[in-house]
Amino acid sequence: MVINPYFNFNGNTEEAFNFYKSVFGGEFIMVMRFSDSPEAGNVPPGTENMIMHIALPVGNNILMGTDAPDTMGFKLNMGNNIYMTLSPDSREQTDELFAKLSEGGSVDQPLQDMFWGAYFGTCTDKFGVLWMFSYDPKFANQ
């Protein structure tokens, strides 16, 4: 299992990640804009070129992030701008850990199969920590 940080920014993800790339080196392994999504026609004007998902390997970890503009319903505050991202080894482990971490907290996005191929969901634990789960069989056990 792998745990990686996931940052939310209010429109400056690309700038932030170019900075992180200049600090840590390496190359982005993914850059997806909201215009690349099957839902591209439903995003608010001005958000099409914002970052939906970006990933930069740093050592044995992956620094990930997204733009989370208020025009899409996000309300960023210090504390809700970072998720701990779990990439479990199996769908079953994902279900088990999700249930345990969300107990006494809240399920923010139920686990479900997503268009990019991952089994994905988010929750907030009883201590207020944000957790993102992403099981992708293409990358499991690597």
Rank of each mutant, 00 (worst) to 15 (best):
residue 51 I to Y: 03
residue 41 G to E: 14
residue 128 G to P: 01
residue 81 N to M: 02
residue 27 E to V: 08
residue 73 G to V: 02
residue 89 D to I: 04
residue 116 W to M: 02
residue 130 L to C: 02
residue 59 G to C: 11
residue 107 V to T: 15
residue 16 A to H: 06
residue 48 E to N: 04
residue 9 F to C: 05
residue 53 H to C: 12
residue 100 K to M: 14
residue 113 D to G: 04
residue 63 L to K: 04
residue 128 G to F: 07
residue 25 G to W: 09
residue 120 F to I: 07
residue 129 V to N: 11
residue 31 V to K: 09
residue 125 D to K: 06
residue 50 M to N: 12
residue 15 E to K: 02
residue 43 V to E: 14
residue 79 G to L: 00
residue 87 S to N: 14
residue 30 M to L: 14
residue 44 P to Q: 12
residue 59 G to M: 03
residue 117 G to F: 11
residue 136 D to V: 03
residue 109 Q to K: 08
residue 43 V to Q: 10
residue 15 E to I: 11
residue 49 N to E: 15
residue 104 G to D: 13
residue 57 P to T: 13
residue 54 I to Q: 07
residue 90 S to D: 15
residue 6 Y to M: 13
residue 66 T to Y: 04
residue 58 V to W: 03
residue 128 G to R: 02
residue 79 G to C: 06
residue 55 A to I: 07
residue 25 G to T: 11
residue 6 Y to E: 10
residue 70 D to G: 02
residue 132 M to N: 12
residue 71 T to L: 09
residue 108 D to T: 14
residue 28 F to V: 02
residue 64 M to C: 08
residue 120 F to V: 03
residue 24 F to M: 07
residue 16 A to D: 13
residue 36 D to Q: 04
residue 5 P to L: 01
residue 118 A to Q: 06
residue 5 P to Q: 11
residue 60 N to K: 03
residue 43 V to I: 15
residue 93 Q to A: 15
residue 135 Y to S: 01
residue 66 T to K: 05
residue 91 R to M: 10
residue 4 N to H: 08
residue 45 P to C: 08
residue 115 F to W: 12
residue 26 G to P: 01
residue 66 T to C: 13
residue 66 T to Q: 06
residue 111 L to G: 00
residue 100 K to I: 15
residue 125 D to T: 10
residue 18 N to I: 09
residue 95 D to N: 14
residue 13 T to I: 09
residue 35 S to K: 14
residue 78 M to S: 13
residue 106 S to H: 04
residue 83 Y to F: 11
residue 129 V to W: 05
residue 94 T to A: 15
residue 64 M to H: 07
residue 135 Y to I: 04
residue 11 G to Q: 10
residue 123 C to G: 08
residue 34 F to T: 00
residue 22 S to V: 10
residue 78 M to R: 07
residue 45 P to K: 03
residue 127 F to E: 14
residue 134 S to M: 05
residue 5 P to W: 11
residue 27 E to R: 03
residue 43 V to H: 08
residue 47 T to F: 03
residue 106 S to E: 10
residue 21 K to T: 09
residue 54 I to M: 09
residue 49 N to R: 04
residue 132 M to R: 09
residue 127 F to Y: 13
residue 70 D to T: 13
residue 128 G to C: 11
residue 131 W to L: 08
residue 61 N to W: 08
residue 68 A to G: 09
residue 131 W to I: 12
residue 49 N to H: 06
residue 101 L to E: 01
residue 76 L to A: 09
residue 104 G to Y: 10
residue 112 Q to K: 11
residue 115 F to C: 01
residue 84 M to W: 15
residue 28 F to S: 10
residue 110 P to S: 15
residue 125 D to P: 03
residue 125 D to C: 05
residue 126 K to R: 15
residue 82 I to S: 08
residue 71 T to G: 06
